[in-house]
Amino acid sequence: MGCVSSKQLKRTLGYEDPNILAKETTFTVNEVEALYVLYRKISHSIIKDGLIHKEEFQLALFRNMNKKNLFADRIFDLFDLKRNGVIDFGEFVRSLNIFHPDTPTAEKITFAFRLYDLRGTGYIEREELKEMVLALLNESDLLLSDEAVEQIVDQTFKQADVNNDGKIDHDEWKAFASKNPALLKNMTLPYLKDITMAFPSFVLVSGASD
């Protein structure tokens, strides 16, 4: 991890002014600069063009750039706000802001809803939920019978699909997630509370000082 000068930063593809990003997010300028060090490392891990490609995102998440994972794809697509197949620095910071401990729960609930609304229909449908459970089982060491999967999905729909129309809408998801806060556990990254404290090496290399 090398030192990054401000001249280098301005010339780098995908870079965005930390002052603007800090104004739009919960992060301070110093925290945005610290996040840039992490971003730079991930975005130069394979293709070295200053943008995060899907293989680089997978490599950072799994230490394996070829590991296919439905949820990694979903998160990448949600971070890729411009939908151009790469994550630039602004997208990285704005997306991570959702995971900041101080970000309102309502924003986390909406992000999780979009994550699970696989086909972007505005609903989490039964088939989507079953697909995600099967993907989780396939991608982990958990083994469950088809009957057990059906039972879990049915039981979850009984609890969450209050109007019983076979799909979970945003309001139903909001009520369900509010009653089951454990569902949002992954939506908060405590490290982000003060990333310059949690990662002092970022301070040294980014020049953050306050």
Binding site: L38, F62, F99, F176, N180, L189
Partner: peptide, 26 residues
């Protein structure tokens, strides 16, 4: 918890990809 005692979303949240802490250890 046993998987069968969890609701489907709890189960899904066990996925490694949904733990973005891993990004910080990149």
């Amino acid at each position: 918890d046993q998987p069968t005692s969890m609701n489907a979303f709890e189960l899904i949240s066990l996925n490694q990809a949904l733990n973005l802490d891993n990004l910080f250890e990149a």
